[in-house]
C-alpha cells in the first residue's frame, strides 16, 4: 500500500537496491549486442539500397561468405586455409610472449617484493623500464632480432612483463606481515618462505594480472604483425585493408575478439579450479 505518491511499491526502493529478475537480467545483458546488430543491419541495408557494390558495410550474407572463404577454402596462391594458418601463427606468438612474460614477471616480481637487497637494486630500474612505450622500441627490436618471430614475441614480452612484474611486487607487499612472521616462527628459511608461502599465494594473483594484460598483449601482437609479417591475424586484416575487404576484416575482428575472450575465460576457470581457496577467501 502506497500513500506517499501513488508510485508502485518497487519504485520506493532506491535505484541501488533494485535488481532485475533472472529473465530480465538475461535480456538486459543481450540488449547492447542486439542494438549494435540492429544498427549495423539498418546501416548496411540503407547503404546497399543506395549502391549494391558498397564495400563499407557489407550484408551479413557477404560477411558469411567472406568468413567461409577464409575458414574453409584453400587459398589459390598458397594452398593454405588462411584463417587457421593465421590463427595458429598469431596464437603461437601471443602465447609464447605471454608465457615468457609471466614467468619473468613472477620470478622477478616475487624476488623484488620479498628480498630487500633485490628490491633496492631493481625496484627503480623496473619502474623506469616499465615507462618505456614498447611500440617506440619496436624498430630497435626489428633491427636487433630481424623481422622474424623473435622480434614479435620480444615486443609482447617487453610490453607485458614490466606491468605484471610491478603488480606482483605490489601484491607481495600486500601480504600481511603477520604471515611472514608466522612462517619464520615455524622455522622457514627465505627460500622456503618463497617456495611454500609466497609463490603459492601469488599464483592466482599472477593469473589475475595476466588476464588484465591480455588486452595489451593482443595490441602489441597485432601492431607487430601489421608492420612486418607474412602471416597472422593482424597481418591479414592490415593486408585486406588495401582492398577495402570489410566482408573479411569484420569476421576476422570478431574472431580475434572471440579468441581473446576465450583466453580470458580459460584463465579465469583455471584460477577457480587450481586455487579454490582463492575464490573462497575473496568473498
Amino acid at each position: 500500500m502506497d500513500r506517499a505518491g501513488g508510485r508502485p511499491a518497487v519504485m520506493r526502493k532506491r535505484m541501488i537496491n533494485v535488481y532485475p529478475t533472472r529473465g530480465a537480467a538475461l535480456f538486459l545483458a543481450a540488449l547492447p549486442f542486439l542494438l549494435l546488430l540492429l544498427a549495423y543491419l539498418a546501416g548496411s541495408a540503407a547503404r546497399l539500397a543506395d549502391n549494391p557494390d558498397d564495400k563499407l558495410l557489407p550484408s551479413f550474407a557477404s560477411i558469411g561468405a567472406g568468413f567461409a572463404r577464409m575458414a574453409f577454402e584453400a587459398d589459390p596462391r598458397t594452398g593454405d586455409v588462411l584463417l587457421w594458418v593465421d590463427t595458429a601463427a598469431s596464437l603461437a606468438r601471443l602465447l609464447a610472449g605471454l608465457a615468457i612474460a609471466t614467468v619473468m614477471a613472477g620470478v622477478f616480481g616475487i624476488a623484488i617484493g620479498l628480498v630487500p637487497f633485490v628490491r633496492t637494486t631493481f625496484n627503480g630500474f623496473v619502474a623506469v623500464i616499465a615507462m618505456i612505450p614498447p611500440l617506440a622500441i619496436l624498430p630497435i627490436l626489428f633491427i636487433i632480432f630481424g623481422l622474424g618471430e623473435t622480434s614479435k614475441v620480444a615486443l609482447i614480452v617487453i610490453g607485458v612483463a614490466p606491468v605484471v612484474m610491478r603488480d606482483m611486487i605490489l601484491r607481495v607487499d600486500e601480504m600481511p606481515r603477520e604471515l611472514m612472521v608466522k612462517a619464520q616462527t615455524l622455522g622457514a628459511s627465505t627460500w622456503q618462505i618463497a617456495l611454500r608461502v609466497v609463490v603459492p599465494q601469488m599464483m592466482p594473483r599472477l593469473i589475475d594480472s595476466v588476464r588484465l594484460s591480455l588486452c595489451s598483449a593482443w595490441l602489441f601482437l597485432i601492431a607487430a604483425e601489421a608492420i612486418a609479417s607474412q602471416s597472422g591475424l593482424g597481418y591479414r586484416i592490415f593486408l585486406l585493408r588495401r582492398y577495402l575487404a570489410m566482408d573479411t576484416i569484420l569476421p576476422y575482428v570478431a574472431w580475434i575478439t572471440l579468441l581473446a575472450f576465450a583466453l580470458d575465460f580459460g584463465l579465469r576457470r583455471l584460477q577457480g579450479k587450481a586455487f579454490p581457496w582463492f575464490a573462497q577467501g575473496r568473498t
Binding site: P176, E178, L179, K182, P200, F278
Partner: peptide, 9 residues
Amino acid sequence: FQRYSVFPH
C-alpha cells in the same frame, strides 16, 4: 595473532 595467523592457501 588476532588475524592472518594461518596460511589461506
